[in-house]
Design a protein around this nucleic acid. Structure first.
Lengths: 130, 130
DNA sequence: ATAAACTCCGTACCCAACAACAGAGTCAAG
DNA sequence: CTTGACTCTGTTGTTGGGTACGGAGTTTAT
């Protein structure tokens, strides 16, 4: 099995060297042992792991959660699904909150548009009101 | 005009004393001058200002943006509206991103549900794939 | 053989929006 | 007049996901 130095691994995954070290630091990936001479050698399977991490991030998982997912592995599908469902609900909640913001903001914008501007900005005044 | 100590102001706005100091520190609100003897006295109008800050935060504005809004004040409705519109678009973009996440996540969950679990977790394996 | 490039290791820094704490001063109630 | 509660001021810590830097060791290319 061929191995890589940290720089090559970073290149292969399109990630900074520092980021890989950071992942090691928080226990997300293992640090290979330091050989008697030369640099640490990284298994090629770590490429998949790092790609996994990046994809899971895209799905909204935090690194601490990704660590859990990696620890669960492929053999605990029910637990994995349950994490995914929790995450899905959080995303939905988040969307909900943002949608309320959007609605409120649009109301304020509209009231500004319908108001005589020489009377002062309706948005500012609404937000200052008791 | 009656004035308040910082603690009373905090109580009236349901905010920590530390938070008010922080707002002073970043120039969001003015710090009243220190009297020759006794504590600093805060004008009651600051209650409205702090309520404004909190409401604007709810709408997704950052403190630096809220500072801009306060500086603009009621006399620059067009600038205020333009900030609100920019914010609105960011919120929409954010919702969009979250919706993609949700969709992806749901696809993965479904594929897990439709797959024989003794074969390994479909979600984990998809994310590990090249 | 020497210079450029890479690695190692630790520490510090970045963002936002505060929270916590320490030590000293001040005020108000009993 | 003392005690407890409040204020003042400055400094440090928190969270998440990294980035940056510095000095020393190692490897690779010429």
């Amino acid at each position: 099995m061929k191995t890589l130095t940290i720089g090559k691994l970073a290149q292969a995954t399109n990630v900074n060297v520092e980021t890989i070290r950071y992942y090691q630091c928080i226990g997300l990936i293992d640090e290979p042992p330091k050989p008697a001479s030369g640099y640490r050698q990284y298994s090629k399977s770590l490429i998949d792991t790092i790609v996994f991490i990046k994809r899971a991030q895209q799905l909204g998982f935090q690194l601490s959660e990704i660590k859990e997912l990696l620890d669960l592995g492929s053999g605990n599908c029910n637990d994995v699904m349950s994490m995914a469902q929790v995450k899905r609900e959080k995303i939905i909640k988040h969307i909900d909150d943002l949608t309320s913001m959007q609605t409120e903001l649009e109301k304020l914008i509209e009231s500004c548009q319908n108001t005589d501007k020489s009377q002062g900005c309706s948005m500012i005044e609404t937000l200052l009101e008791k």
